[in-house]
Structure formats: C-alpha cells, structure tokens
Design a protein around this nucleic acid. Structure first.
Lengths: 150, 150
DNA sequence: TATTGTTATACTCTATAACTATA
DNA sequence: TATAGTTATAGAGTATAACAATA
C-alpha cells in the first residue's frame, strides 16, 4: 500500500492520506481535460457547469457554483462566456428577481455532447484501468467523501 | 448514482465522470489542509514533500517533483523554504554533481509530525465517513487511477 | 437584515521556456 | 547532446471583500 510502483517513491507518513493522491489525480485529469477541450476555447469548468444546468434547468448561480465546485465569483465569468457564445441563457427569475434562471440552448446541448466526446479519452483510461465494478465504486466513494466534507 | 443528495443537483451527462468529483474533493481537502497548516507558514505541498524526502532519503528533485505532483520549478521554492527553515538539507550528490541529495533534519522530522497531527482532522472526516475498509479501497483506487494516467 | 449576482482584487497553483552546470 | 536544478514569467484557479438590487 505504501509502495508506489510507478515512481518508485514511498508515501511514508502519508501512506494512508487521501489528500496527496487526490491532488495527483485531479492534476492529471485537469491537464488532459484542458488539452482535450482546447478547441472549444471555453473557460475550464464550462463543461461541468453546462451539464449541471442541463440536468437542473432553472438552477440559480449560487447553488450551481457550490455543486460545480467553483466559486460563485468565478461562475459569473463562466456563465458570461456561455451566454455570449449562445450556449446558455440567463434570465431573471419571475418569483425572485435577485436570481438568474439558467438554461441551456439547443446549441449548448450539442456543444456539450461534443465536449463530452472529447473528454471521454481521459475518463475512459481510468475506467479501463479500474474495470466497471471498481469504477462505479470510485464514484461512490468520492461522493461519500465529498458529502462528509460538506 | 446520478443524484447528489447533499446539493440537490444531478450530475446529468457527467453522472459517471470522475473528473468533477475529484476536483470537488481536492478543493475541499486543500482548503482544510491550508487552514490547518496556516500556523507553520510553509508553502502548500511542504508536508507532502517533507514526507516523501523522509521516506526516500537522497531522492533528487526531479523525481521528487513527479512523485509529489508538483512542477519541478515549483519544487525549488518549496525546498528553498524547507532549507531556510532548517527542516531539510540540500547537498550536491557526489556521484552526479548535477543532482541534489535531499534529506530531512531532526527538526524537520518533528515539524512533519506536528503537521501531520494538524492535517489529521480533514483526513479523519473522510476515513470516518467511509470506514476502514472503504477508506483503504479509496486509496487503492486512487493509486490505480493515477498509475493509469501516468 | 439577509441574499443574489456582480466587480475588483490578490494569492496560490501549475506549466513553459530559457539559462547554468554538469554529464 | 541530454539531464538536473534554477530563474523568470504567464496563465489558470480559487478566495475574499465590497457593492447594488432585491427580498
């Protein structure tokens, strides 16, 4: 468990620490994702935001930011860009005019699917290495870990 | 699986994606770690680097950077600070004088342990939520995922 | 008084390129 | 010609504080 065959380095006192391993994986996935989505010229996190809006139409920005794991300030810029490109729409909520009612346009839906196809590469490397069963297990454990830290 | 009870948001098209979940967890753990280690006034990543040097004495910086998941350029600053504070020593390797031979000082060992005690909080929240068996499983899956992306 | 979205701002993290000294 | 460490630099990521509009 403490041995890391791929680098030859041992974790030592951090043998049972989740933090450094998660950072390592996040960096690797982020690098691949950024490279894969370069052609879309959208800010990082756009795909996550787009997917969340599509799955939860009408969501407001504060809740969305929390779910996406980005700051609400940072989300402004992302939504700005999505709106400018015609991928998402930002309308004032009728019931609470402080809130923005967010939706994904048809073009946004199509773009999202094209982006997903691009990102699939890095994701599938993990899925292939783990196998279906352990892949689902990893998703479950990450969700539970996130819930515990909320 | 697609439902995220804690925020009420669904992942939608990203229901089986590791990337966003890992980012979420990394951010949460990083924020806790930074807050917990604030009193030490050391650059982020110092604990990981210190632990890796301690467990692999004499390791050179390039290999260390890769294992720690930080850029070799960024590692220079971290080691600078560790050296200035007397926590680690940087000596030229006798066999290959391009390389630095890194070791942890006794003070560094003590500091490392104090830091580990501080970080334990965030880590234990995850461990408690997952239980021993699933905690170890998570470590295993993260290692395998990292190896797959190397 | 509290909350939503926004702006401004700063700091951290990470990557790239170029330099030096060694090999 | 290649590698280890260093420096300089830029870009992306994230966070905080303050503000206007609204509740």
């Amino acid at each position: 468990m403490a041995k890391r065959e791929h680098t030859g380095h041992e974790w030592g006192q951090l043998a049972n620490a989740v933090g450094p391993r998660v950072r390592l994986l996040r960096n690797a996935l982020a690098a691949r994702s950024i490279a894969a989505l370069e052609e879309f010229a959208l800010p990082t996190g756009s795909l996550t935001v787009l997917s969340l809006i599509a799955a939860n139409p009408g969501s407001n920005q504060t809740a969305l930011a929390k779910a996406a794991g980005v700051n609400k300030s940072a989300l402004v810029g992302i939504v700005d860009e999505l709106e400018k490109r015609g991928l998402a729409a930002r309308d004032r909520s009728a019931s609470d005019r402080r809130r923005n009612h967010l939706t994904v346009t048809p073009v946004g839906e199509a773009t999202m699917k094209a982006m997903l196809a691009r990102v699939a590469g890095g994701e599938s490397k993990v899925r292939d290495a783990l196998g279906l069963r352990d892949h689902l297990k990893l998703l479950e454990l990450l969700d539970r870990a996130n819930a515990a830290l909320e």
